[in-house]
Design a protein around this nucleic acid. Structure first.
Ligand SMILES: Nc1nc2c(ncn2[C@H]2C[C@H](O)[C@@H](COP(=O)(O)OP(=O)(O)OP(=O)(O)O)O2)c(=O)[nH]1
Ligand SMILES: [Mg+2]
Ligand SMILES: [Mg+2]
Ligand SMILES: [Zn+2]
Length: 570
DNA sequence: GCCGTTTTCGGCCCGACTGTTTTCAGTCG
């Protein structure tokens, strides 16, 4: 998807430039929408011949298709080159600064010669920005703080870090509000969130807003009104937004605040076509409120099935809901076992018995111990002797403990020459094999992964892209090539729930699903207390529109469609 | 720039908060 991503980035930049130049906002949105559409496509635009794939994609019309073709043929887009000659490239990142929008940036550029972060800081400091018409001390002070945040804070954080903080922020609200609900991208379980969004319903809402802004974690209050407030908290410098409404508006408000924006806009457009109006207070036919208490009621009056938050991204879910074809997404309760767990035989902290008991407490029927192979030395990789001892201990635990089946697995290293770290003689004695690259990210990664998949004893590829949200970009390979190959060989792809991995992510899952791949959702835990983190992987799977049957570990162990059990593709 | 069981032109989601404003623009959700 390299080309799609490149073109999406250019469209995003064109949108930014047009916005700065004060172009028609709908044109700006058209470019943003086209950018999103490119990222959400099933097909890789690797060459101009694949242009037919564009036909019928919503948001990509004649002009966009022409520019895409131009890029694929020539490697650049003339319109972008034109635009970027008018506006310094270094101005675009300033749009990310809170309280600093396109009008102010452009005024500062035209009137004060501001061209980048450094020069806007100077204009703030020496009072020139405040002197511009319509500006003033307070506005500039807000911009100054926005710049501070921009320079220090990370842009987005993993859902796995954000959800526990959200729960902490919601706790004291529960005492003063009727209902307190998570909303925004966190409720949609996006892999990363830009902030936290919380909805509360109440009869006396000023008390709820008070409680919120005086939460002990709050460092700064951005805004505070009758119906909403916005704060920055100490944890991760996160912004947290609170919205309050009366109970009769709960459904409409939750729908609004859960988003996504694109989902909201499309729903509201549909409502308009039906001579209805949707806002965060309800659905209105003229003056009369005709729905609003429950999300389901709002969808129903628009002729739609209720849509799970995870897929509210305007990726076809509204069309599916109209046709009554919203998929039954995989649920946390469907997960029957977790087979990517590390014991103290490699780099885990707990013994096998402890892991087994914790898995049983989760209600699982089985748990797979999946320690590192010898080559992962820093991760305590096991030699053959140690593996033998571990397998004996698993047998022992299975004899001792009822109600959970402990399985013998391995996270076997894919070596630098593409061979596996253990011979088949060892692998075939195990219940399942997960293969992964842990070293040599730049060295023939695709070729090595494929040669690993050529071994019929390999059931699953772990964290298939290798990227870390904290920064590491991942293996040097084309993930679509790996997806195709895995689907063809009946090798399953992991959805790793670790907060820094979330790998595969939603977009990759969507394409892998179209390619016919199967998936394993696992925690990759190193501590028995971490089983519940599976929820992040389940969230990712749901965002990828997966159902129960797409996911290996929703089956009882004897029925899990492992590659090694399949008749074909050996 | 996109799009069409109202349309091939004229719409495109809707509202809250802040600051600088004497009536509303800018920014954000
Ligand atoms: N109707 C409408 N709703 C919006 C708009 N902008 C934001 N919202 C709603 C939908 C969003 O999911 C919700 C929260 O806004 P956020 O800016 O926090 O976005 P969101 O949480 O989706 O993503 P994030 O991870 O925070 O960047 O508010 C808008 O322009 N129109
Ligand atoms: Mg948000
Ligand atoms: Mg928000
Ligand atoms: Zn692992």
């Amino acid at each position: 998807m390299k080309k799609n991503e490149e073109i999406a980035t250019i469209f995003e930049r064109i949108a930014d430039i047009l916005e700065l130049k004060g172009e028609n906002i709908f044109k700006v949105r058209a470019y943003r929408r086209a950018s999103e559409a490119l990222l959400g496509m099933d097909e890789d635009l690797s060459s101009p011949e694949r242009m037919e794939e564009m036909a019928g994609i919503e948001g990509i019309g004649k002009s966009m298709a022409g520019k895409i073709k131009e890029y694929l043929e020539t490697g650049s887009i003339a319109k972008y080159k034109d635009l970027i000659s008018d506006v310094p490239e270094t101005l675009l990142p300033l749009l990310k600064i809170q309280a600093l929008g396109p009008r102010t940036i452009m005024a500062a550029f035209r009137e004060l010669g501001v061209r980048d972060l450094e020069s806007i800081e100077k204009a703030v400091a020496d009072g020139r920005l405040a002197a511009l018409p319509g500006m003033g001390e307070k506005k500039v002070e807000n911009i100054r703080m926005g710049i501070e945040m921009y320079k220090t804070g990370k842009e987005r954080i993993s859902i796995g870090l954000a959800l526990p903080v959200a729960e902490e922020m919601m706790l004291p609200l529960r005492a003063v509000a009727e209902k307190v609900s998570l909303a925004g991208s966190a409720r949609r379980m996006r892999e990363t969130v830009g902030d936290l969004d919380i909805l509360a319903t109440c009869s006396d809402c000023s008390r709820a807003v008070d409680a919120f802004v005086s939460h002990p974690l709050v460092r700064k209050v951005n805004a505070r009104g009758e119906t909403k407030a916005s704060v920055i908290i100490g944890t991760y410098n996160l912004q947290v937004d609170l919205r309050v409404v009366a109970p009769e508006s709960y459904g409409a408000a939750l729908l609004y605040f859960t988003g996504s924006t694109a989902h909201n806009v499309k729903l509201r457009g549909r409502a308009r076509d039906m001579d209805l109006k949707v806002n965060e207070y309800g659905v209105f036919r003229g003056e009369e409120m005709v729905a609003g208490k429950r999300e389901e009621d709002v969808y129903r009056i628009l002729g739609l099935q209720w849509i799970p938050p995870e897929i509210r991204e305007d990726r076809g879910e509204i069309e599916a809901a109209l046709a009554g074809k919203v998929p039954e997404l995989v649920r946390a309760e469907d997960i029957r076992g977790d087979i990517h767990t590390h014991s103290n035989y490699s780099d885990g902290t707990n013994d096998i018995r402890t892991i087994a008991l914790a898995a049983r407490d989760m209600g699982y029927g089985y748990v797979g111990i999946c320690d590192h192979s010898a080559a992962s030395r820093i991760a305590g990789g096991m030699d053959e002797k140690k593996l033998g001892a571990r397998n004996e201990e698993i047998d022992e635990v299975n004899r001792e403990i009822r109600g959970i089946e402990v399985l013998k697995g391995i996270e076997v290293d894919i070596l630098s020459d593409g061979r596996l770290d253990y011979p088949d003689r060892i692998l075939e004695k195990l219940d399942f094999v997960i293969a992964a690259i842990h070293q040599g990210f730049r060295k023939d990664a695709a070729k090595r992964m494929k040669s690993a998949m050529d071994n019929p004893l390999v059931d699953i590829i772990a964290h298939p892209t290798g990227r870390l949200l904290s920064g590491r970009s991942g293996y040097d390979l084309d993930i679509d090539e790996i997806i195709e190959y895995a689907a063809g060989k009946n090798v399953s792809l992991e959805i790793n729930s670790h907060f820094d991995r979330l790998d595969l992510n939603d977009l990759n899952i969507l394409r892998a699903r179209s390619a016919g791949a199967r998936f394993l959702i696992s925690t990759d835990l190193h501590e028995a207390g971490m089983f519940a983190n599976i929820r992040y992987g389940v969230g990712m799977a749901r965002r990828g529109w997966l159902t129960r049957k797409d996911v290996l570990n929703t089956y009882e162990w004897k029925d899990v469609p492992l590659r090694r059990r399949s008749k074909c593709c050996r």
